[in-house]
Design a protein around this nucleic acid. Sequence first.
DNA 1: GATGAATGAGTCTTCATTCAT
DNA 2: CATGAATGAAGACTCATTCAT
Lengths: 206, 206, 206, 206
Amino acid sequence: MSAPAVGPRRDGDRRLTARGEERKRQLKAFAVSRFAEKGYHPTSVAELVAGVGVGKGVFYWYFETKEQLFLELLHDAQRDLRHARQTAIGPACAPVRRIELGIRASMRWWADHRDLVNLFQFAATDERFAPALRRGQERAVAETAGHLTEAMAAGSVPGGDADVLAQAVLGATLHLARERIHAQGEDADEVADAAVAFCLGGLHHR
Amino acid sequence: MSAPAVGPRRDGDRRLTARGEERKRQLKAFAVSRFAEKGYHPTSVAELVAGVGVGKGVFYWYFETKEQLFLELLHDAQRDLRHARQTAIGPACAPVRRIELGIRASMRWWADHRDLVNLFQFAATDERFAPALRRGQERAVAETAGHLTEAMAAGSVPGGDADVLAQAVLGATLHLARERIHAQGEDADEVADAAVAFCLGGLHHR
Amino acid sequence: MSAPAVGPRRDGDRRLTARGEERKRQLKAFAVSRFAEKGYHPTSVAELVAGVGVGKGVFYWYFETKEQLFLELLHDAQRDLRHARQTAIGPACAPVRRIELGIRASMRWWADHRDLVNLFQFAATDERFAPALRRGQERAVAETAGHLTEAMAAGSVPGGDADVLAQAVLGATLHLARERIHAQGEDADEVADAAVAFCLGGLHHR
Amino acid sequence: MSAPAVGPRRDGDRRLTARGEERKRQLKAFAVSRFAEKGYHPTSVAELVAGVGVGKGVFYWYFETKEQLFLELLHDAQRDLRHARQTAIGPACAPVRRIELGIRASMRWWADHRDLVNLFQFAATDERFAPALRRGQERAVAETAGHLTEAMAAGSVPGGDADVLAQAVLGATLHLARERIHAQGEDADEVADAAVAFCLGGLHHR
DNA sequence: GATGAATGAGTCTTCATTCAT
DNA sequence: CATGAATGAAGACTCATTCAT
């Protein structure tokens, strides 16, 4: 009754040869840049394969659909951002310091991955991608909220709804990254300083 | 010198009959809900006219293209938001108070116009609409920055880059509206309280 | 959640103008001949619209999909055949005579609608169309079986499973139509005579 | 004069190793079931090799094209059916008895090879396969017609067009196999009894 | 022998837009 | 003003077939 899947993407991730792995990476990288520049819908699969210089079939060898490719891009990006943040925060230290490090790491990542930030923004507007995006964001918020809760318990910041505050921090920081770094071309570290000052101020004095 | 105009599109706003105005309003309202729900690209003109129960010709009588319709929606929304904010702030008073009133008014408007917020978000990701969106946002930021500058001059908040701070405020507030009001269904006024507390904290103590 | 249908095929059958009705008829007629000649799958929608000299969109104005077109063709043909048979049998008379008239009418229809017979044959081999075909065939068999049951009750033919016998009659007759009339080009009436003789013999003497 | 052959396709039947034979048998068996279930066109080569768990190259090692595979399937089936019929009829005996044995043997084979019957039916609708199918069917009809001619000469059945009658027998029997055995799941022997009774009745009394 | 990767023409379908009536 | 019909370029996706490794 159900057509047996065919092609390399049978189970979770078909084993690909080195050449295959490379092709897939090429396609993804090009797709990210195109999606960011022209948008998801206006970018056709034909354009993607042409940009990489391969036949149309190649795309469907590596990805089930254009939609799946986008989801994969989304997941990869979220994993990478999470990793960057966690690496930056490193071993335990004061919770407020961890929040600061998180803000700075995120800002740096966003500065370095302007295209992916654009992808996130689009994903938020499409009912097919919004859930995946939200899940990733919830994780990020939960992490920050965790640090905040610790800080509140330790008395270093006044009590409050940790989740709401974490989201305020995320919103302020991401918006600054987009508007000041991407759009205005300002220096990432300076913007990060301002973001940290603003957010920590907001957290400490309410 | 001028031959009698033909067709309604062409100049800014052809004079429309009352019935015409109503039709146009219907189309716009329906388009907003569809664009918000399914996205701009996945929503077809055919769907819009079917939803309003008119023929395709009607659409092209009132709008030059689907793109123009979206731009018109965008402008209307920005004008309306601006108006809501200005009305709420009203006559002169302390600059920090004006900022607070602006935050509350924006939050209320965003809470009441979930669909339009979605439109804004999409507009940011499409190269054809991003410029228009940006212009509107710059105006909003400039207003807040103006109040901030006044506040700094008056010494009620420490000095700093008013533009960056205004954008941090906008980012935090808008993000909270989306995540706490739209997504979580929280009470707009409570979220507004939290946003105001966070932002004023961020502005005062750095 | 469900995209609102668009275009003319909303409910059962959109009201079409005379011109529209004519276009649809053209497309169907051409499709029947192509499907019969080349088969359903090897015939592309592009070929159909080119054959009628219209743009590709026209096809989808009148039919939801290629599959729906085929089903419509199937239903039309079955209705037409049923009508031809019922007209030929006319008012009540001896049940065996009615069976004979049914055989002759079917044979005549099949002789005149070679393409449609081909469609039926293909429909039987595709899981999407077989059910529809079967339903129509069951009706035809049930009619003949009804006459047969009457004949058995009246003692004009020996008893037996009326359904099986009706199907034997259908099978023999249809096969003869295909092989002798369509393939060999024999005269329809002569083949009908042979079919009637064979079938009535088979029904009377067991 | 002849250079050493390269590749296995080319002449009728390259000699295959035991493993090769087995592989080919597997592919054919799987193809039969798929073609029968989903149809020839909707079944892709990719699906076939995936189902057998081999790479695509294997398919083209054993078969020139998908079309050739189908033809091979068709020929095999026709040969097998012919063989079954001839074996069942066995040594000379009364011609009418031979016809009966032929009907029973065919019915049994059809009952046991539902998938292949489906293949036959599809083959009839495709211009590329119909000729091959027809040739096989003509042989079967000719055999039955031969017995019939003998019977007519011996006076055991009234004279008539032996070919037409043989085809009526084939049509009735095959149709019963499909409708009563395959579709309704009736017992093959019972259906065979009914078919024999009907057909012999039809042959004897006209 | 066998495989995974590649090809690219071809398939069905959609959709913004136009226009005769 | 309004409609239904038409257009045709463009889109996502498929698939028989080939071939380097």
